[in-house]
Design a protein around this nucleic acid. Structure first.
Lengths: 343, 343
DNA sequence: CGTTTCACCGTAAGCGGTTACATCACCGTA
DNA sequence: TACGGTGATGTAACCGCTTACGGTGAAACG
């Protein structure tokens, strides 16, 4: 590996000049700059990032906090891949790398344990990370708040946090839900139920709120027994649907807070002998891949998946360079009408 | 941030001793060791990884090479999330972190361009990465070979590579395909077609080979027009199926090299008025999520998705510590019989 | 012609660890 | 008593880069 010193010797300049060529090119004479660059290229020079980070106290890395061995076994993020694509490409464009942090297993560790924000924050300091991107694993609101308060620049996905250098990005859950439920109402449905996510989950709460607004706007009554809680998983959708169907006056339309639950509901409906959408209209949320594959294809509220990553990347970079808090980002959603609501 | 020097001063020892406490605990007197550890804990000491890496010329990071802006637009890895879960948790357990590399956009870059192995290898040196994990993006065989030859420890997923410190992990594609096609033969089918992946793709080739073996074992003739090429995408499955159905003697069973193509084939069959599985049996490969959701649920060959990541992690760590090549890992597959083959 | 200005560049002190080597006290042994 | 061995620790060089500071020569100025 060629070092700056070698280049300096070959060019007859000092290491300081070599460094300047790469960091403040305008301060060095064009002729010598060219010379240094040429030699650097010939030698295949790669600046030592460890040395640079040590000296400048900052690296070009952003930490990604994503709990894989989570307390909710089997949990899968609905669109992790698209999110990462957006995140990574936006970060790459500005020379940043994404570091998937681990807090466990390191014998050298001092006082950091798994799923413990402190552990991640420690890692942030160890590696001079510019900031953190926090991926929601379903119910980390409290932990995320700790991150936000730590002073480390961080942006949370789908969890509203607040802190000196913290912000978040989320979809317009309320608006999307409102559009979805409104769509059902517009189709003439008057008995519209909702299957929610786990209580306390922010996107879920927002979706419930949007659902309520849509009912109100359509002049429909809001019945308590039409709102039943799920947990975003498919099975919970089936269970919830069964409870709805057991009602004296079962709904003719259901809005599920996730596509997975919508699929579960669809199963339950079919098992009960109902035809979808003829007897029961179903709308989901997320627009994950299976939405277009189930039969009937699921009408759903699409989230801007890569946009999530891009927005997170922009926010974190802005906070790193700007040094202050950024405004939260609310991404627009889009109602994708397919066959499950019989429009 | 507390440094080793501060600890040293507070404990009345030298920085060397502090360092030894963490790296060669056995060489330092128990009493002083306890003292140093206690003070370190009180100060919330976190070793500076940049300094450590600079000094030792190695970091605790493994690079992940995953092309997001690939020449095949819309490409998605069939099970990236599970793979990452396995990879990350196995690496975490040994104190390694995963760095998602970017090669583009860095103005400071010297001679590294996107999708160029050299760029990634340069990044490896810059950051003192222990090694690289290469995720196949569909057709990177040549590029991967360049990685393998670079001397950097690396393990490729689903691409057979060879090099001084390179190895790969892949599924038993041939065996899985053989079992799948054999299953169809066992069901009494004699006209069994196959929809392959893109020509040159190694897993696809192996699956074709397994398919051929199964036919042979069942005493069935191998007809050239029964093997039609797709590209792993859904649309290509539809197209391929249409061609198969246009044959004078259309097949009664189809084995697709991916679930996506199987779904596409299923659509084509249904559009042609065929019932699945009564008129046409279909088997896929991968066992992605949609396989269990389509109607009829897809019989398919399941890959050990998290196992991929775990195996890759073990291999790369073994090569880093061992310094030499590891044997390739072939993961067993499992035939998941659902409804699309009418067993 | 002396002085100021300015563009350019070198010197050297860090950044926070690791580690080869030296030191020192202490013990057992001849 | 002199000496080699051993365990515990200190000393200092080094890893490769950044940057504050100072120096130099030439152009510009009065």
């Amino acid at each position: 590996m060629a070092t700056g010193r070698e280049i300096a010797q070959l060019c007859g300049v000092s290491v300081a000049t070599v460094s300047r060529v790469f960091n403040q090119p305008e301060t060095v004479n064009e002729e010598t700059r060219e010379r240094v660059l040429r030699v650097a290229r010939e030698l295949g020079y790669q600046p030592n990032e460890s040395a640079r980070a040590l000296s400048t106290k900052q690296s070009t890395m952003i930490g990604l906090v994503w709990d894989t061995d989570h307390r909710r076994p089997g949990w899968r993020h609905p669109y992790l891949q698209d999110l990462l694509i957006g995140l990574k490409s936006a970060l790459s464009a500005h020379g940043y790398h994404l570091l998937m942090l681990a807090t466990s297993g390191d014998a050298r560790e001092v006082g950091a344990s798994l799923a413990d924000p402190v552990g991640y924050v420690n890692m942030t300091r160890r590696h001079h990370l510019g900031g953190l991107v926090l991926i929601d694993s379903g119910s980390d609101a409290e932990a995320f708040e700790a991150f936000a308060q730590s002073g480390v620049p961080c942006v949370a996905l789908d969890v509203a946090v607040d802190g000196p250098k913290a912000t978040y990005v989320t979809s317009d859950n309320e608006g999307g839900a409102r559009e979805a439920a409104g769509h059902l109402a517009g189709l003439g449905h008057t008995r519209i139920a909702m299957i929610t996510g786990p209580p306390g989950n922010q996107p879920s709460e927002a979706r419930v709120s949007g659902y309520r607004k849509a009912l109100e706007e359509a002049g429909l009554p809001s019945r308590a027994q039409y709102v039943v809680a799920g947990d975003f998983y498919r099975t919970s959708g089936t269970l919830a649907m069964q409870r709805l169907l057991a009602l004296d006056e079962p709904p003719t339309a259901v809005f599920a807070a996730s596509d997975e639950m919508a699929v579960g509901a669809l199963r339950a409906a079919r098992a009960a002998g109902l035809r979808v959408p003829a007897d029961l209209a179903i709308v989901g949320f997320d627009d994950i891949e299976i939405a277009s594959v189930v039969d009937p294809a699921l009408t759903t509220v699409a989230q801007d998946k890569p946009g999530f990553g891009v927005a997170a990347a922009k926010a974190i970079m802005a906070m790193i360079t700007g040094g202050c808090r950024e405004d939260p980002v609310i991404l627009p959603t889009r109602l994708v009408v397919r066959d499950s609501c019989g429009s």
